[in-house]
Amino acid sequence: MSDWLLIDGARRLFAETCTHEVVQAAEAEQWSSLVWDAAAGAGYASLSELELADALAVLTVAGEHAAPVPLAEAALAGWLVGETVAGPVSVAPGGGLRIEGDSVSGLARRVPWGHAVERIVAVVEGQAVVLSVASAVRVERHANLAGEPRDTLVFEAAQPEEVRAAACDLRERGALTRVALMAGALAAMARLTVAYAGERRQFGRPIARFQAVQQHLVCVAQEAALVGAAAEGVARAPGLFEIAAAKVLAARAALAASRAAHQVHGAMGMTQEYRLHHFSRRLWAWREEYGDEQHWAARLGEALAVAGAENLYPAITGGSAVV
């Protein structure tokens, strides 16, 4: 069970700092010192030092407010290295770097807020390598669907600040952070959509009275509930089974819930001035990051096939304790 004081504090902090204007500005400026300083000040830059469930619970709150800062990356960096990495810090999600002697060369692609952080952690040949961003010869700005920076950093014979055996599996942990963030974004999307349908009136009544609209509301609420339950389950037992199952559910929910939520909002939901896109675009982006539903379903399915028919139900109830 996560720490309620911690969660409550996070709720307050992100509600106060991540206003619509701030999130909007962070996208334009590709960084938000306001949110980062507040979050770091509250200790969220070292989530890796908390119990895993607590760290994930904070990320869920961050996702609920579309917090435009690399908190998941700071946590991942800490988990990879085995202790908090002084930040702001990000993580290179994929390969592309190689170790040559005592230096590192190659491309680190899709690095969240790569241009704005001080250092990144990359996994190269099983090693967690800490690189200063200043040691990159070039930084190319890119972004994901949500407009969150996903930069390319080019290194040529850079001297790593540190090299240690990676203390966790980046893909699994990365997927775990995305599940936590997505559970939050889905909860926010469900609340926003139900509230909107209760307020928006057409044909003389709130659109929530129309059965066709209710169907969409139920869909968003179901997906949010399912991923909320998955996030909670995976926080308690973060094995391959649970991570895979949770990311499958979250990735599918990203599509189904966003589609239904947008339909309920009509044209208003297609604008920048209305908040829905802060959640739908993030959900679409996070769905892909660290493996989409196909990737994780295939891994889960392979493990289940190996375990065999007799273990199918025990796996559904016991998860990674069985498979």
Partner: peptide, 23 residues
Amino acid sequence: LGTERASIVLGEMVASWWGLRRL
């Protein structure tokens, strides 16, 4: 069960069972 498609289908179903069961 040997194909990738089968793995995906099996994985997707079991993910749903896992989540629905929790709810």
